[in-house]
């Protein structure tokens, strides 16, 4: 039968299969079990980078304008929409109808989107249609030998 499954939420909810050993909450009221200290869960990279699953999206970077921040063409970006776009943060912005990744900067009273590649000029935000889409929290860059 040909149905295609697509799961809802790569960047999403799915609590890591077993974040806590089952009995951890049950023993809360009693004496701490001496064994508790030695329970090492499998390390879950998804949970490590995705703090707010409902608000976290993955994006693919294009071009070399952010190379100075270690963002290469084709890298995977983790974008958290729940974070505030403070100056200094690398953000995704909807600028004139397109999604772009740049660093938010304030100089005096003026706000700019700056690239981290000297070949690109800072973009003053004054008088432009710009909406913050989210804050980039992590970059995943693959090296030779990695299978995509």
């Amino acid at each position: 039968m040909t149905t295609t499954a697509s799961w809802v939420g790569s960047a999403a909810l799915n609590p890591a299969p077993q974040p806590l050993p089952m009995f951890a909450s049950a023993v809360r009221a009693g004496f701490p079990s001496p064994a508790d200290d030695h329970l090492d869960a499998e390390m879950d990279l998804h949970g490590y980078v995705v703090k707010r699953p409902a608000a976290t999206f993955f994006a693919r970077s294009e071009g070399d304008s952010m190379i100075g921040d270690g963002i290469h063409h084709g890298d995977l970006l983790v974008v958290d929409r729940s974070l505030e776009p403070l100056p200094g943060r690398v953000i995704v912005v909807a600028l004139d109808g397109e999604l772009t990744v740049k660093r938010l900067e304030r100089v005096g009273q003026r706000t700019y989107l700056s690239a981290s590649n000297p070949a690109y000029q800072p973009i003053p935000l004054e008088g432009r249609e710009a909406h913050v889409w989210g804050v980039v929290t992590h970059v995943l860059h693959s090296l030779p030998g990695a299978t995509p």
Binding site: S6, W7, V8, G9, S10, A11, A12, F57, F58, A59, R60, S61, E62, G63, S65, L76, L77, V92, E98, L99, T100, V101, P148
Partner: peptide
């Protein structure tokens, strides 16, 4: 949001 090959692109 559900396929690695189809993520949104940002420049």
């Amino acid at each position: 949001t559900t396929q690695w090959e189809e993520l949104v692109h940002v420049r």
